[in-house]
Design a protein around this nucleic acid. Structure first.
Lengths: 352, 352
DNA sequence: TTGTAGGCGTTATCAG
DNA sequence: CTGATAACGCCTACAA
């Protein structure tokens, strides 16, 4: 009862009137002030603004703080300063492996700079997204939107309130980070052309997808350049299952090479084709997009255009943090480069 | 300089004195009070405690709030109430696909109950984890630890402060949610025995892993029951690469069936074996563990013991939220069942 | 049912 | 360099 042996013990010694900090509540700067024999405001300064206080009293305060196991109450701080060292990340679909890497990238750089990451998922719904975004805006210093589904207007509205960075979509007037599909697509198409292919099918993603449209344009351009015939096939869903369902259409199209909107489609397509006895890549070359986790688990492993998702997450977070730390905002789009990852699912066409 | 054309411009127009809410700061209950012609405290009640206020004034207040686009300042609220509607999730390695599902599960149930999820990663380091945990404890209502690396003591210490739920590990005195390997393992071993296998190799995970030890015990027990010989092989790393490196040892062991600590090992092992010309499952059956994303991308698709990671995340979050909402804590372990997912990588042994 | 007043823990301003 | 003191926005006895 007398000698405190562990720091966990509450030092309910002198049951002085008023703010008996004995309870379970955390120590405050007042407690430290009393312990160190200085004024609370001095404690605040010593702790958050060292340099504006004498070395001796600072030491005094710091010791007292450690001894009492003090931690700032960030709410109280936030109440006054308005900033929380927290940034929000909303992804369109937490179920989609594409976003895992984005999350990783963002988490790594935020935590590396001592910020906290708050995560939410919009389930591909503009409304859910808007709700989540609004809720977050209240508690967060800035917001990163990965493949947002809401209107440009809404995004700009949020951006006028707090820093916003958008990944995977271009919204004018807002900082954006997007993978630039062109380089990777050119490489893919050139590789295919070099292997004797003449006709390429692009399996598109969701009609509303900004990215899908963009990738198709890239394919068209690259094919024209390489003198390949390009045709576009519409998929029902950008999933493995959706890919399976495309097998017939792909076969019917007469194309000898396929580039898909994403890896999931490519994997499903390959599975179905192989089940039907079509050798890959001997009779049909398949190239995916993104290089998601598991893209190399297939046999043959999937050739794909790597989208630097992780880097995008990291870049977005960096832009965000830079801006929060006073570096003036750079409005506009950063392009992260894509590149072809040549694996086994594409190659020379064998004459049948 | 005169006409703002983009929303990014700061509207520092009339530097009017005092709380003219025209600035950029958010409306407060005072603003609403003024607009509705009532007292701020009434606004507070109307908004957070409807029922203790007349229906008419409540309507009045709500309308004013909507019109001003009011949102509570959760810091101010937290400062007073101590709770933030936020829960923290720390995963051992955000790079490991195993945790994706945990994150999903947790995110889904938290956001479904209007809580916010804060995410951090410990990079498999006890120290990093402790730091992250401490930082979070300050701002969060409760903490979920997925495969924590810190000492039991530390975990219990945090648990004595705020609600803590642990996933994938058992810590006495703390709520835990872990997949119960036994059922799935029994199913796997029985299936293997039924297919004529006599000798099973278990490829273990990291030596310190609580889970790896547990799984090995399950394997031993099940093999004894099914009269299979069980032997244990140590892997260097629980990754695809680590799996590749195990191919020789597996072959040398004389086992005809392999159960691995996780899917990554199984996939690597299978790749290497196939590259060496060993037919799977005809000469060797391979069974993984977890059923991570991509486990069915391989050919043959991987037979595996499914670990309900997503469910674990969800369960942990539910326990957490229940407890935060007054339902008394249930200390102890919840076991989520595992089950065998029979796919193509295991089967009858073909006589050579 | 509604208004008044004080406090939650920090930071920031202003004197000393 | 340090001490008082007023916000920050909300909640909650207590009083009307």
């Amino acid at each position: 009862m007398t000698v405190p042996s562990t720091p966990e013990q509450n030092d309910a010694d002198h049951p002085s009137p008023r703010s008996i900090n004995a309870g379970k509540s955390n120590p405050t700067i007042y407690d430290i002030a009393r312990a160190a024999g200085v004024n609370p405001s001095t404690v605040s300064r010593a702790l958050s603004n060292p340099g504006r206080v004498s070395a001796t009293t600072r030491k005094l305060v710091e010791d007292a703080a450690n001894q009492l196991n003090y931690h700032v109450n960030s709410f109280a701080r936030a109440l006054h300063t308005g900033s929380t060292n927290t940034i929000g990340l909303i992804v369109a679909d937490i179920t989609n492996p594409t976003f895992f890497d984005v999350i990783r990238g963002a988490e790594t750089t935020t935590s590396g700079r001592d910020y906290t990451l708050v995560l939410a998922d919009s389930s591909e719904s503009a409304l859910t997204e808007l709700t989540a975004a609004r809720r977050m805006m209240a508690t967060v210093d800035g917001l990163i939107l990965a493949s947002p589904r809401m209107e440009d207007e809404d995004i700009r509205a949020m951006a006028s309130d707090k820093p916003v960075v958008v990944i995977n979509r271009e919204v004018s007037g807002v900082s954006c980070v997007i993978p630039d599909a062109n380089k990777g697509i050119s490489q893919a198409v050139r590789s295919l052309a070099a292997n004797g292919h003449k006709k390429l099918a692009f399996v598109a993603g969701p009609p509303q997808s900004w990215m899908s449209a963009r990738r198709w344009h890239g394919v068209e351009a690259a094919c024209e350049w390489s003198r390949l015939e390009a045709l576009r096939l519409e998929s029902a869903k950008p999933t493995v299952d959706g890919g399976r369902q495309m097998a017939r259409a792909v076969l019917a199209s007469g194309a000898t090479a396929v580039l898909t909107y994403n890896d999931l489609l490519a994997i499903g397509l390959m599975q179905e084709l192989q089940a039907a006895g079509v050798p890959v890549p001997d009779h049909l070359s398949i190239v995916g997009f993104d290089d998601i986790f598991g893209a190399d688990f297939t046999s043959p492993p999937l050739t794909t255009v790597r989208s630097p998702l992780r880097e995008c997450g990291a870049l977005a977070a960096e832009r965000m943090l830079d801006r929060l730390n006073g570096i003036p905002e750079v409005i506009g789009t950063i392009h992260a480069e894509t590149e072809l990852v040549l694996r086994g699912s594409s190659g020379r066409l064998l004459t049948i």
